[in-house]
Amino acid sequence: MVKRAIMVAAAVLLCCGAALSADKDDKEMKVGFVYVSPVGDAGYSYAHDMGRKFIDGKDGVTTAFVEAVAEGPDAERVILNMARKGYDLIFATSYGYMDPMLKVAQKFPDIVFMHCSGFKAAANMGNYFGRMYQARYLTGMVAGGMTRSNTLGYVAAFPIPEVIRGINAFTLGARAVNPDAVVRVVWTKTWYDPATEKEAAKSLLDTGADVIAQHQDSPGPQEAAQERGVYAIGYNTDMSAFAPKAHLTAAVWNWGPFYKEMTDAVRNGTWKSGAYWYGMDKGIVDISPMADVVPERVRARVAAVKAELIAGTFAPFSGELRDQSGVVRIPAGKSMTDAELLGMDWFVEGVVGSTQ
Rank of each mutant, 00 (worst) to 15 (best):
G40C: 05
R52E: 12
S37G: 06
T93V: 04
D25V: 11
A68N: 15
V39E: 10
E28I: 03
N81A: 13
S45W: 01
Y44N: 14
K53S: 04
A68C: 09
I79P: 07
K53T: 11
V61S: 00
L20M: 10
A19R: 03
D49R: 03
G43L: 02
R4A: 11
S21D: 06
G57I: 05
A75Q: 00
Y44H: 10
E67T: 06
S45Q: 03
L14Y: 02
S37C: 14
K27Y: 13
V36N: 08
D74K: 02
D59M: 01
R77N: 08
V34Y: 02
L80E: 15
D88R: 01
V66L: 14
V69T: 09
P38N: 10
S21I: 08
A64R: 13
D56H: 09
V12L: 06
I55F: 07
R84D: 12
K30N: 12
M29H: 03
C16A: 08
P73G: 00
F65D: 04
G43N: 05
F33G: 10
H48I: 11
T62Q: 10
L13F: 14
N81T: 11
G43H: 03
G32F: 00
V61L: 07
A64G: 13
C16W: 07
A92G: 11
D49S: 08
H48C: 08
P38L: 02
I6S: 11
E28S: 13
A5G: 15
M50H: 05
V12P: 03
G40F: 02
F54P: 02
M82V: 09
M29N: 10
V8L: 15
D41E: 09
D23M: 15
A9E: 05
L89Q: 03
C15V: 11
T63G: 13
V39I: 12
D74T: 12
F54L: 05
A68I: 02
V36H: 09
A92I: 06
D59Q: 00
D74F: 02
V36L: 12
T63W: 08
D88H: 07
K85S: 10
A83H: 01
G17W: 03
R4C: 07
E71K: 10
A22F: 04
C15M: 13
A10L: 11
A11S: 12
G72T: 03
R84P: 12
S45A: 14
R77T: 12
D26P: 03
E71F: 01
R84G: 14
A83G: 04
T62L: 00
V8I: 08
V36R: 05
G43F: 00
P38A: 04
D59A: 13
M50P: 11
